[in-house]
Simulated assay, not measured.
Amino acid sequence: MPKVLSKKRGEKAEKKEATSQSSAAAASRAFGPMFNKDLGQHILKNPLVAQGIVDKAFLRPTDTVLEIGPGTGNLTVKILEKCKKVIAVEMDPRLAAELTKRVHGTPDQRRLEIMIGDFMKAKLPYFDVCISNTPYQISSVLVFKLLEHRPLWRSSVLMFQREFALRLVAKPGDSLYCRLSVNVQLFAKVEHIMKVGKNNFRPPPQVESSVVRMEPRNPPPPVEFKEWDGLMRIVFGRKNKTISANFKTDTVEEMLENNYKTFCATHDRMIEDPLNIRAKIHGILERVGVAEERAAKMDQDDFLRLLVAFNEEGIHFC
C-alpha cells in the first residue's frame, strides 16, 4: 500500500474519533454539567427519593435549612417548598451557577442563599435542620462537625454509603458496632430511615446508599469528647478482645502513666512510690466489673461508668 494512502486513512480515523468524542461531550452537556469524580459528585435524580428525604425531615414553615452539596438543586427546590429559607453550601462553582439559574426569577430566589466553598472549612450559620447528599469520603468529619455546632439544631437528614450508615445505628453485639457507633450515639439519637439504590444517582456510585436522621441530645451529655474518644480508641482497638487485654499494652500503659503523673503534678496529689500503673488500671477494671468484658458487647452506660472510675483515680485519656 502506498505511504500516502496509508497516511490519509490514518488522518480520517483520527478525525472520526475526534468527532465521536466531541459528540459524546455535547450529549453529556445536554443532560447537565459534567460531574467531577474527584469531588465525589453523584446527583440524586429520582424525584420520589428526593421527596421522601424532604418528608422525613419534618420541616416547618419557619425553618432555616442548611443543605450541604445541593448539586443542581433537585433536593433544594423541594426543600424550599416547605421552609422559610435554605442556605446551600456547594464546593463546585459550576454547580452553584446551575442552581442559581434554576431559581432565578422565581419566588424562591430570595429565600435561597448559596455559600460557595468547602463545607469542612466553612463557618456554619444558624440553622434548624440540615439535609445533605455529600461526598462519602467526608462522612465521618461531616457528622462530627454537625454535632459540634452550636447552637444545637433540631435534626439532620443525611445520605451516606450504606455500610457507614449501618455503623452509625449499630447496637452492642452487631457486627458493625464500633467506636463510631458509640461516639455518635453518645451525642445524638440516630435512626436509619431509607435505603437508596445506585441507579437513583447520576452518575451511579459504586456502592449502595442509605439515609439516616440524627437528633442531637439536648442538653448534651456532660462529657469531654476528647477524653471519651481517648477511652474508646483503647477499648475498640481490638473490640473482640477483653477490656483488660486492650489495656495491657506498653503503649497504653505508658500513655496513661504519663497522664496520671501530669494530673497529680497539676493537682498537688501525691504519686505512689513505687507506682505500678498496670495494677492500678487492673484494679479499676475489676472494681467496675468490666475486666473480662468485650467492647463489642458493652453499651453507653458501661463506658460512662468506666470513664468516671478512671477519672476519679486521676487517670485521664487526653
Score class of each variant (00 low, 15 high):
residue 94 R to L: 13
residue 87 I to P: 08
residue 74 N to L: 01
residue 73 G to I: 05
residue 88 A to F: 09
residue 63 D to M: 08
residue 79 I to L: 08
residue 66 L to H: 05
residue 59 L to T: 00
residue 81 E to L: 14
residue 84 K to T: 10
residue 63 D to V: 12
residue 82 K to E: 15
residue 60 R to N: 01
residue 70 P to M: 06
residue 69 G to I: 05
residue 67 E to W: 01
residue 80 L to H: 04
residue 75 L to C: 05
residue 93 P to N: 14
residue 63 D to E: 07
residue 86 V to P: 04
residue 65 V to F: 09
residue 59 L to Q: 00
residue 85 K to S: 10
residue 97 A to M: 08
residue 81 E to M: 14
residue 95 L to F: 11
residue 75 L to Y: 08
residue 78 K to Y: 11
residue 93 P to K: 13
residue 95 L to N: 03
residue 64 T to S: 12
residue 64 T to D: 10
residue 86 V to L: 07
residue 74 N to R: 09
residue 79 I to Q: 03
residue 63 D to Y: 05
residue 67 E to Q: 06
residue 70 P to W: 06
residue 94 R to H: 12
residue 77 V to T: 12
residue 68 I to Y: 06
residue 91 M to I: 15
residue 96 A to M: 08
residue 74 N to W: 03
residue 71 G to M: 02
residue 95 L to W: 09
residue 87 I to Y: 10
residue 79 I to V: 15
residue 67 E to L: 11
residue 67 E to P: 03
residue 74 N to E: 10
residue 72 T to S: 11
residue 66 L to Q: 00
residue 77 V to I: 14
residue 76 T to D: 07
residue 62 T to A: 06
residue 74 N to P: 01
residue 68 I to S: 00
residue 93 P to Q: 14
residue 78 K to A: 12
residue 70 P to K: 05
residue 62 T to W: 06
residue 81 E to R: 15
residue 83 C to K: 08
residue 72 T to M: 07
residue 94 R to W: 07
residue 82 K to T: 14
residue 90 E to L: 13
residue 79 I to F: 04
residue 82 K to P: 12
residue 87 I to W: 07
residue 93 P to G: 14
residue 85 K to C: 14
residue 93 P to H: 14
residue 59 L to R: 00
residue 67 E to F: 06
residue 66 L to M: 09
residue 81 E to K: 15
residue 86 V to W: 07
residue 66 L to I: 09
residue 87 I to E: 09
residue 80 L to I: 05
residue 92 D to T: 15
residue 97 A to L: 13
residue 71 G to T: 04
residue 76 T to F: 01
residue 96 A to V: 09
residue 78 K to S: 11
residue 93 P to L: 13
residue 80 L to T: 06
residue 95 L to P: 02
residue 87 I to A: 11
residue 97 A to R: 11
residue 80 L to S: 06
residue 65 V to K: 08
residue 84 K to N: 13
residue 60 R to Y: 00
residue 87 I to G: 09
residue 97 A to K: 13
residue 77 V to S: 05
residue 96 A to T: 06
residue 72 T to F: 05
residue 66 L to V: 08
residue 96 A to S: 12
residue 80 L to E: 02
residue 64 T to F: 11
residue 65 V to N: 06
residue 80 L to K: 00
residue 62 T to I: 03
residue 90 E to D: 12
residue 61 P to K: 00
residue 86 V to M: 04
residue 86 V to R: 02
residue 64 T to L: 09
residue 67 E to R: 03
residue 89 V to I: 15
residue 97 A to P: 05
residue 85 K to I: 09
residue 77 V to A: 02
residue 59 L to M: 04
residue 71 G to V: 02
residue 91 M to E: 12
residue 94 R to Q: 15
residue 82 K to D: 11
residue 93 P to I: 14
residue 94 R to G: 10
residue 81 E to T: 14
residue 87 I to N: 08
residue 91 M to V: 15
residue 78 K to L: 15
residue 70 P to I: 04
residue 79 I to H: 03
residue 96 A to G: 07
residue 71 G to E: 02
residue 78 K to I: 14
residue 65 V to A: 10
residue 80 L to A: 05
residue 80 L to G: 02
residue 80 L to Q: 04
residue 74 N to D: 07
residue 87 I to D: 09
residue 64 T to E: 13
residue 72 T to V: 15
residue 97 A to E: 13
residue 93 P to F: 14
